[in-house]
């Protein structure tokens, strides 16, 4: 057990720029530009532009360059390997959220903190699976931190998606599947049955597909022919295309969302698409509790999501937990996930 000086500041703490390591003089997923930023993954609420130097997991590099610019000053680290920065040991471990997503392990004088970033515990063909990292302090996300969120087996969900596509293709319809362009789109693509029909995406998704393929992730061939999609095709586009001219122009279509929020009937109705598939890249309730158990920390800091309920519940079950408030807390967790 490390001896922590009660008078010295915690190893990581929030300041006006983000989650800061004072002894190491670096930030994790800062929301302003800083000198040295360790980035958990490429989603826009975690990776912000204009920092002077970045560190990320190796498979995340090309994604960050697409998102933050080609010429960023970027250092990469294979999963499990470590560097020492101003005397603080930093290593990155798979988070299973999207390609290249990492948990950040920080060690100083024997005290270990782990920042999970976004993560999920279910298997995903497009990224390395989550690895629990034992620590003294765990900083966990809580996007789906309520006991009503329990994910169905993703294999079943992918089967349902293919069945939905197949059924509508036979009816001569075009299927439009709404998914975030980074992560969710590729996860869906990797499991589509390309025998059913042609698959299209929008340019933003195609650009990220290239980064995935460069890392050896298998994705099906896309139909890049110009002109309108044929009946029987499947289109994957970002949620922002909903109710736009795009969906209207494909008038014989059927739409679906793939997201954890689809577990709630009310949310499906609000989304106004024809189908909702429960498929999330975040941990569900059991996944969150499992992670706390696996990492066996002395203290848990909760961020990003249903912070208050998870903190209160952990404390009631004998785990010391606190809220770690970030600017993303003010927004509703639902809006926030949709921004990713």
């Amino acid at each position: 057990m490390p001896m922590t000086d009660p008078l010295s500041p915690p190893l990581l703490q929030i300041n006006e720029n983000g989650l800061f390591c004072q002894v190491g003089n670096f930030y994790i997923d800062p929301w302003r530009s800083v000198d040295f930023a360790v980035i958990t993954h490429g989603h826009s609420d975690h990776a912000k532009a204009h920092s002077r130097a970045y560190l990320c997991a190796k498979p995340s590099a090309s994604i960050l360059r697409i998102r933050l610019g080609k010429h960023i000053n970027l250092q990469t680290l294979p999963y499990g390997e470590s560097i020492t920065h101003n005397g603080v040991k930093i290593s990155l471990h798979p988070a299973g959220h999207i390609l290249g997503s990492a948990q950040v392990r920080v060690e100083y004088k024997g005290e270990v903190w782990v920042v999970t970033g976004d993560y999920k515990r279910e298997p995903d063909l497009t990224c390395d699976p989550f690895e629990p990292v034992p620590c003294h302090t765990l900083v966990t996300e809580s996007t789906f931190g309520l006991p009503i969120f329990n994910w169905p087996n993703p294999e079943e969900v992918h089967k349902d998606i293919n069945a939905w596509w197949d059924y509508n293709a036979i009816q001569g319809k075009i299927c439009i599947l709404f998914a975030y362009s980074l992560g969710k789109a590729q996860r869906l693509l990797s499991q589509l049955d390309a025998n059913i029909g042609p698959i299209h995406t929008n340019p933003a998704i195609s650009a990220i597909n290239k980064a995935y393929e460069a890392e050896g992730v298998y994705l099906p061939n896309l139909d890049n022919s110009s002109g309108d999609a044929r009946p029987g095709s499947l289109l994957i586009v970002p949620p922002s295309y909903l109710n736009s001219r795009f969906t209207e122009s494909h008038y014989i279509n059927t739409t679906a969302h793939a997201s954890g929020w689809m577990a709630l009937k009310g949310m499906q109705i609000q989304n106004r698409s024809d189908r909702g598939f429960v498929l999330s890249d975040h941990a569900d309730w059991k996944g969150l509790l499992q992670t706390v158990e696996d990492c066996n920390p002395e203290k848990v800091l909760v961020t990003h999501g249903f912070v208050e309920p998870l903190v209160k519940y952990l404390n009631e079950t004998g785990v010391q937990a606190y809220a770690l408030n970030t600017p993303y807390q003010a927004e509703s967790p639902i809006l926030r996930e949709q921004n990713e």
Partner: peptide, 15 residues
């Protein structure tokens, strides 16, 4: 589960 957590969930699900 504690009742408060159930109520919190119900508040979100609405049913």
């Amino acid at each position: 589960l504690p009742n408060w957590l159930f109520e919190e969930s119900y508040n979100l699900a609405g049913d």
